[in-house]
Amino acid sequence: MVARKAETLAVKGQVDPMSTAPFRITRVIKETQDTFSMELAPEASGERFSFSPGQFNMLYVFGVGEVPISISSDPTGQMPLVHTTRAVGAVTQAMWKLKAGDALGIRGPYGRGWPVEQALHNDVVIVAGGIGLAPLRPVIYSILADRDRFGRVVLLYGTRTPEDMLFRKELEKWRSRFDLEIHMTVDRATGSWRGNVGVVTTLIGRSPFDHQNCVAMVCGPEIMMRFTVLELQKRGVNDDRIFISMERNMKCGIGLCGHCQLGSSFACKDGPVYSFAEIKALFTKREM
């Protein structure tokens, strides 16, 4: 009788996909009242963390748990790995208390990110709401690293108040460039804000981009994305040129746990970025 080969899990070269690798927090940046960025370096080796824009990592806080957080750093340059997140749940609140020198577990990168390749030689319209700018920042870095190969690039960014804007200094720096068109708006003007007031969707109608040769990338609260898609469609942008990032409960990040089921896909593996054409049948249905 032929016995099947008996191997333990730790067979050479076989890494458990649920294992996490300790990373050192090298810097914490307070972005807004409740949002912060962490720069991270692997403890094991100095190797660059390679990922594509729109992908996420599972971040593990020792003794507390794991959460999926998108990567907000530059995929092309020498910038360290950065995660930007809001302290809203048990794990992210525990993360908020960590300081430079502390460790986090990281596994990833996971998921299908933004269609930067598809956007080559097209106008690019980036619409971000609130913390939705974080997963889109790597797209901007990627485009800037290869700027000549894209058409007009428009970033439309809306937040509740001016104080809720992420990456303010960077946005100002980018605004002074002639090859990026940036419009920011707030729902409520506070302090010395002299910019636009109104929801981010109102910026779409008057933005200069070629609706037939553009790729739109949208990230923000689901409801903001719904209205943004409507405006883009009004401008004549095709559904297969509109991309949105869907947030679902990702527990494993690798398509094994079922929590992020979205229609006939797993948001962790088949998303989080979907073309609107792929997802429109479900997008306006409740509780999907």
């Binding site: 998108s70 809203v88 709401g129 609130g130 974080a134 729902d187 109104g198």
Partner: peptide, 11 residues
């Protein structure tokens, strides 16, 4: 604007 959509924005 009334929906205050960013109240539950991405984490």
């Amino acid at each position: 604007q009334l929906l205050d959509v960013y109240g539950s924005s991405k984490g």
